[in-house]
């Protein structure tokens, strides 16, 4: 069931974005894994999962790091912000940010997000970007399903 969903995502990629997505850090098989993990997480939880990989630049606010401000800004651009969960990774800044919307936070507390971020960071430190993101997605989906 989730595979059918993932297929739909890949089809969209093939039509209008898959080729350009290959300009990013992932190869074809990694993109497939990411698409399947995203679709499965969304299908199982009803939340809107999203993954950003790139620089996180913004002005820091009081007690809030600049990368967190930038990630929250990306999160605010999603269509269903209350149900949205954003995983933002900045390889150059070596930081991973997980942002949850109002309703998503009811299913995913900060501790669950922290555990997912920790696991992802461990994979990133080993040079595995796609693996870390997929791990974080699975952990968050597993937690939100309970």
């Amino acid at each position: 069931m989730t595979h059918g969903n993932a297929g739909a995502v890949l089809e969209r990629h093939a039509v209008d974005g898959y080729t350009s997505a290959l300009r990013g850090p992932f190869n074809g098989s990694q993109l497939t894994r990411l698409s399947q993990a995203l679709s499965a997480a969304e299908f199982e939880t009803g939340l809107q999962f999203s993954v950003y990989v790139g620089e996180l630049n913004a002005d820091a606010e009081k007690d809030v790091p600049a990368t967190t401000v930038a990630a929250r800004g990306f999160h605010s651009e999603l269509s269903r912000t209350d149900e949205a969960v954003l995983i933002a990774v900045s390889p150059n800044q070596r930081v991973v940010e997980i942002v949850t919307g109002r309703n998503a936070a009811k299913l995913l507390d900060d501790r669950a997000c922290g555990l997912a971020a920790l696991s992802a960071a461990a994979s990133f430190a080993g040079g595995d970007l796609a693996g870390g993101i997929v791990t974080a997605l699975r952990m968050l989906a597993e937690r939100a399903r309970r």
């Binding site: 990630a71 800004g73 991973v96 949850t100 919307g101």
Partner: peptide, 19 residues
């Protein structure tokens, strides 16, 4: 477009980590 920091009332939680 880069985010404006004022429009983040919808954010409820999250976490961060570094490596």
């Amino acid at each position: 477009a880069l985010p404006s920091s004022s429009n983040t009332e919808h954010v409820q939680g999250g976490a961060r980590d570094t490596w």
